[in-house]
Each structure stands twice: as C-alpha cells, then as structure tokens.
Design a protein around this nucleic acid. Sequence first.
DNA 1: CCATAACTTGAAGACTTCTTCATGTCTATA
DNA 2: TATAGACATGAAGAAGTCTTCAAGTTATGG
Lengths: 110, 110
Amino acid sequence: MLTPGLPLYQAKAEFFRTLGHPARIRILELLSERDHAVHELLSEIEIEPSNLSQQLGVLRRAGLVLQHREAGEVRYAIALPEVRALLLSARELLSGLIDEQAELRAQLRS
Amino acid sequence: MLTPGLPLYQAKAEFFRTLGHPARIRILELLSERDHAVHELLSEIEIEPSNLSQQLGVLRRAGLVLQHREAGEVRYAIALPEVRALLLSARELLSGLIDEQAELRAQLRS
DNA sequence: CCATAACTTGAAGACTTCTTCATGTCTATA
DNA sequence: TATAGACATGAAGAAGTCTTCAAGTTATGG
C-alpha cells in the first residue's frame, strides 16, 4: 500500500514482503512479459482460483499491477516498468548466491 | 538458505522474504557502505542486541552477509556486490510507486 | 583465574500471513 | 430477466514470523 510518512527502509521492507510469495513472483514474471487475463494466469500457475484472486489483490493494493475489464474477462498488467528491472536484479543476485554456495561446498569437500 | 532443487520462483520468493524486514534492510544498507562491527550496527539501528543478532543470523543463513571476528569484535560484511544493485533497483521502483500514487491522488481530487 | 564486554542462541507468546471455503458481484447471452 | 461464466471478498484455522527473555559463548583486561 506504500503508506506515506513511513521511514523509507520500512517502506522497502513492506515492498519486499509483497514480493515474498511464489505465486506473486510468478504473476509478476508472467505480467512482465505481457498482459494476462485472470484465467490465463490460472492456467499457468498451479493455484486455486480464489487464492490467485487473493494474491492479485495483494499486488493490486501494493500498486504493482493494474486491473481492467475487457470483453468479459479481467486483465492484469504491470503498473511500472521498473518491476522488470528489479526481477532481473534479483535473478542476478540469486545466481551470485548459488555460485557462492557452490564454492562453499567445494571448500568443504577439499 | 537457498535450498537446492527448489523451483526458481520459489527461491526468489524466499529471497525477497529475507529482505522483508526493516532491520534487515537497514543492516544491508549500512553494510553496503562499509563493513561494520555488531556494536556499530547497534548504535545506528534502534533495536535490542538479541534482536539484531537474530536478524544478522537470518542474513547469514541466507548467504547475504559474512561474519568474522577481529580484535575482540565481530564484524559483518556484504557477501555479494549484487546486493547494492538490487537495493538501488528497489529504491527506483519505490520512487516510481510513490509518483504513481501521487498521480492517482491527483486524479481523485480533480 | 575472574570479571567483563561483545555477541549468539533457543524458546515462548504475540502477531501476521496463507490457504481454503462459502458466498457475493458483475456481465454477457440465451 | 434468468443463467452461467469469470472473478472477488470475508472469515477462519493452520502455519509462519517477530520480539524478547534468560542463559550460553568467546575473547580480553585486570
């Protein structure tokens, strides 16, 4: 929700917690490729419809995605282009972590 | 901890949850400037010593920070340079969100 | 060797977040 | 205007996370 007047580091933490769910990550990744209707997301993500709605609600309230109705379906889109960059950043950090852990394991073996 | 064999989107979610705490964000921000001893972090962050230790433990187990003992104090350092880039990415997204919300509020007023 | 400073740890209760269920809304179409 | 399809919502129990407390390490100085 990005409550105004909050210290920045607290807003950041809140924001990261919003990303801290596997379904929400998948939603954002799918949406950063292109817009999707809810039933399209549903066929890509293994999750119950009501659960998907809940997670979409979290992303919507956080201001990360936008919803609109079109031809009898509800479509979702990324609200900000920066989301893509952030997910990329995260991917790079993750592979850094994996390398680091591989090194640690190698050191343990030797 | 970055459990191996986990789907990538789940590892990502886990990773973002690790960042989803105000104290942990502050720790990473301070450490991405320079190494700090625990008592130095303690004087910058308003938090109980045992709580700080807990949060440092979370970051350590996630492989984001490194610990070492030196001259009677315990010092922490960022484990990966990518952390800095990610925090920057997050900052930009956050300011994008703030702008977006300001626009929404402006539209509501008019 | 004892005391102290600097940290860490495990455990427990308070608090949040998740998932699911039942129900509700909205829209197109027969 | 009834019906069905496509989503959303509120509530509730289960599961996870936070903070703090008491107790434990580890090294250093007296």
